[in-house]
């Protein structure tokens, strides 16, 4: 999303003066952050192919060396960590980073087997510290993922509360980017992971996770609370009738979650978040998640194939009518 609005015009619209002495250090910080971003773009390994390749290689190495967690993990951790600190070449750093990630995964898993609670608490401390000070993007992503999965495995017997809380935290992080924090990556991971985990559970037909999505009103309530956080962010700019419509939409979402599938509800909430934050990629992911959850929902119903066809046809007509309605509204703009 890029508009014709400049930053100066935007700040003027929001009554923020660039000549305010309080704003000056913040402006300098924003310029610095932008320069850092541009430096990152000069790195040939600052790329999706490189990221996927690195993660895949790190996971392969981790899986291969799982039988020797300390014998392989400690030397890799020390050597790669020390070498990464010294080296300046992008290619060598990329290489070392891959095996450093493998070593972190090996050691975390080994320690987690010995004491899950201590590892989770330590990860929480590291994650909080990494969110509050400027560390590498990769480090924040890795810490957030490790923290999420550690919490999930600790509370595996009762996963609803942690998954719901992660979703709420992620929603809040996306809708209210906090001052002096670098928490955008954890926010994405915390929003995505519960939905992806439920989807993976539905694909692999894991009974505990399928029941989370289909039979639990608690999961639906947690997803609906994401909608409530969105409402909190918007209610100042809404009129009374809009507030009622918004709340009615929230109740409809809750019913959708309770009676259809919590996954469908979660993906709809994710789409709304993406819409109100103008995030195109997030919108596409939300739509893809919605389609998957909808297909799994239809396949799980005890109905005939022709009735499934009628449901799909009705959905198609609904989308088409909605599209025609949008087209009718366009000339008035």
């Amino acid at each position: 999303m890029t508009t014709e609005f400049s930053i100066r015009q935007l700040l003027a619209c929001l009554n923020v003066s660039v000549f305010d002495p309080v704003i000056e250090p913040a402006l300098e910080k924003a310029c610095l952050s932008e320069r850092e971003q541009e430096t990152g773009r000069g790195n040939p390994f600052y790329n999706m192919i490189a990221l996927i390749g690195m993660i895949f290689a790190a996971l392969l190495c981790f899986y291969g060396l799982r039988s020797y967690p300390f014998a392989a993990g400690v030397p890799l951790f020390v050597c790669c960590g020390a070498a990464m600190y010294k080296t300046k070449s992008y290619a060598v750093r990329f290489f070392l980073k891959t095996y450093f990630i493998s070593s972190v995964l090996l050691l975390t898993e080994a320690c987690f087997r010995m004491s899950p609670a201590i590892v989770t608490a330590a990860l929480f401390i590291f994650l909080t510290a990494s969110v509050l000070r400027p560390v590498g993007q990769g480090q924040r992503i890795l810490l957030s993922l490790l923290f999420f999965f550690c919490v999930y495995f600790v509370f595996q017997e009762t996963p609803i509360a942690p998954l719901g809380i992660f979703f709420m935290l992620g929603t809040a992080g996306l809708l209210f980017p906090l001052k002096n924090t670098y928490g955008r990556e954890p926010a994405f991971i915390f929003v995505f992971c519960p939905l992806v985990l439920i989807l993976a559970g539905e694909i692999l037909n894991v009974p505990d996770i399928v029941s989370l999505s289909r039979e639990s009103w608690k999961m639906s309530a947690f997803f609906a609370s994401g909608f409530l956080i969105l409402f909190v962010g918007l209610y100042r700019d809404l009129e009374i009738n809009e507030i009622f419509r918004f709340l009615a939409g929230g109740v409809a979402l809750l019913f959708c979650g309770v009676f259809l599938s919590a996954g469908i509800e979660g993906s709809l909430v994710l789409f709304l978040i993406a819409f109100f934050t103008n995030f195109e990629a997030l919108k596409r992911v939300a739509v893809a998640l919605f389609c998957f959850f909808f297909v799994f929902f239809i396949l799980s119903l005890p109905i005939s194939l022709s009735f499934a066809g009628i449901i799909s046809l009705t959905a198609g007509v609904f989308f088409e009518v909605f599209r025609l309605r949008l087209r009718q509204l366009s000339p008035k703009e």
């Binding site: 999303m1 930053i7 935007l10 209210f176 980017p177 002096n180 934050t277």
Partner: peptide
């Protein structure tokens, strides 16, 4: 021109 990334940066930097 404003982009989504700039908006996030404006919030993070406290502007």
């Amino acid at each position: 021109p404003v982009s989504l990334w700039e908006l996030v940066c404006l919030c993070r930097s406290g502007i």
